[in-house]
Design a protein around this nucleic acid. Structure first.
Length: 491
RNA sequence: GGUCGGAUGGCCGAGUGGCUAGGCUCAGCUCUGCAAAAGCUGCUACACCGGUUCGAAUCCGGUUCCGACCUCCA
């Protein structure tokens, strides 16, 4: 528990106090998606985690530049698709421009995140728009003696680098193990024979004839290697050294390890001070993966049209579900768990709507300041959002008790409770009430229906009252009777 | 095979050497014409076997099981 933000740094394997290099400025980078498919649940986790960090840092008055890239070039497929650009492959099948495909999936990613109330980053660079920067970086690495050209491609010389640097310092791998592990299970990537060593990775790949997305370079017409784009773009917009670099745990090796190697070989410095990694989403205990046929697209979750889903789940349900687990733990996905989040999220938001109208008294049965301090301490403890949510539920309980006049609160405490509750739920956790209705015509119709039903109830005409209620339910509108009249929501 | 992580109540998930997170489900209750919604109350778990300790789910050792990475991946 601390009054200052602490985050877990994968580089040091411990929780450290967050100290930006040049306060109040903070530079943070998240490895965004490769846009060769619709966004799946996994994409949402890193985006939401960084969104909460982004929001919290801003709440703490930092001036944050948040860079989240779009990878629209260069990822190689293996197996049957050897050497072919993923985006290029799909484009040919659909007879679309490669950039059209990339744009389509980029849009899909944006839409999904927008629904989840994820703030747009400060800068969202595309790899295809930074070919020049990548080429320049490769040239610098070559001239520093850490890369070599081979048959039109350029490879990073891991062994050369390891002589003076620690290749493996992020992932905890030892080069001997990597070499030793290159045994029977290792698959053969295209162009392996061009490398001096199997652990060398591509900085630039010469394009095969069927390759669509390719650019001129000093070495060949080709495309950049997978890792170099993030190094080039983070360097361009955040500087050679910046504060936070994040991504999924599956990117730890080789992607981030290689990023560190490249940047160090180029700039003689480790690019980021803090490395953060979110864990995977699992389903029945296994990582979601296309190859396991258990991947769920974000839009499928929202629409409920996936064979593993019993119903549709709202964007806020997903956001709340993600936040209920710590970002460094795996999160197991199931209908039961999602339904739990749906109800819980609703309960919390219901309570939040009552804070301003709570009856006041001249004493308080609760210690609002202690409660607020606890929230900050929990956020500061490596973004312990599950605990923050638990603490918010404490207040939700108070709010309900106060509303039922079983507890008391002073006016001053109520103001503080309201402000803090809202700050955490809406500004920091980024939840938002999913207002149904907000359609004037529907509101008008519903108010009329509810008014007719009210009259019927007053006349004890239960037949009419129930007919309206049941009929509306069949039409997808749920009527909820309360002490102060009836309300409705779309179901 | 190598490296690393995890096993918590019906479900999801926090966490700490002693003061039994939280949500959901379930049960009871309040409210209600009935129901739903909403609210309240209840439900004492930490894989197994040893050890350290006054005390361990939390520390140490071992066992079993699961997962991640090593190859594109959020």
């Amino acid at each position: 528990m601390s009054s200052r933000l602490h985050i877990y740094n994968t580089l040091t394997k411990q929780i450290e106090e967050f100290q930006p290099a040049e306060p109040p400025f903070v530079g943070m980078y998240l490895c965004g998606p490769t846009v060769y498919g619709d966004p799946h649940l996994g994409h949402s986790r890193g985006a939401v985690m960084m969104d909460v960090l982004f929001r919290y840092l801003q709440h703490l008055d930092y001036k944050v530049r948040y860079v989240r890239n779009i990878t629209d070039v260069g990822h190689l497929l293996n197996d049957a698709d050897e050497g072919e650009d993923k985006i290029g492959k799909i484009a040919k099948a659909n007879k679309l421009e490669p950039m059209e495909v990339a744009q389509q999936y980029t849009n899909a990613y944006h839409h999904a995140l927008q629904k989840m109330n994820v703030l747009p980053p400060s800068i969202e660079p595309r790899a295809s728009g930074h070919i020049l920067e990548q080429i320049e970086m490769i040239q610098e690495i070559i001239s520093n003696g850490f890369a070599y050209e081979s048959n039109g491609s350029v490879y990073f010389d891991v062994l050369q680098y390891a002589e003076s640097n620690n290749y493996g310092k992020l992932s905890g791998r030892k080069l001997e193990d990597l070499i030793a592990g290159a045994g029977e299970e290792r698959r053969t990537l295209e162009g392996q024979e061009e490398k001096k060593n199997l652990n060398d990775f591509a900085l630039w790949k010469k394009a095969t004839p069927e390759h669509i997305m390719k650019w001129n370079s000093p070495w060949s017409e080709g495309f950049p290697g997978w890792h170099i784009e993030c190094s080039a773009m983070s360097g361009k917009y955040l500087g050679k050294q910046f504060d936070i670099h994040a991504g999924g745990m599956d990117l730890l090796f080789p992607h981030h390890e290689s990023e560190i190697a490249q940047s160090t070989a180029c700039n003689h410095t480790t690019p980021a001070k803090y490395w953060m990694h979110n864990n995977m989403i699992t389903i029945n205990g296994q990582k979601m993966a296309k190859s396991l046929n258990n991947g769920v697209l974000i839009e499928e979750l929202f629409a409920g049209n996936h064979h593993l889903l019993e119903q549709a789940y709202s964007p806020m349900t997903l956001r709340f579900f993600l936040l209920q687990a710590h970002y460094r733990s795996t999160l197991d996905f199931s209908n039961e768990a999602l339904q739990g989040s749906e109800k819980g999220c609703e309960r919390l938001l219901n309570a939040s709507a009552k804070t301003e109208t709570l009856p006041i008294a001249n004493i308080s049965d609760i210690n609002v300041h202690e409660w607020a301090d606890k929230l900050y301490a929990q956020m500061n403890d490596d973004l312990a959002t599950p605990q923050v949510i638990a603490t918010l539920f404490e207040a939700a309980k108070w709010i309900n008790e106060i509303a039922a006049k079983k507890m008391k609160i002073t006016s001053e405490d109520r103001t503080k409770l309201h402000a803090t509750f809202h700050t955490f739920i809406f500004d920091i956790l980024g939840l938002v009430s999913e207002d149904q209705g907000n359609n004037d015509a529907l509101d008008g119709v519903m108010n009329l229906m509810l008014d007719i039903r009210k009259t019927a109830k007053e006349n004890k005409d239960w037949t009419t009252a129930d007919k309206i209620r049941d009929g509306l339910k069949a039409a997808g509108v749920e009527v909820m009777d309360g002490k102060e009249g009836s309300t409705y929501k779309l179901s």
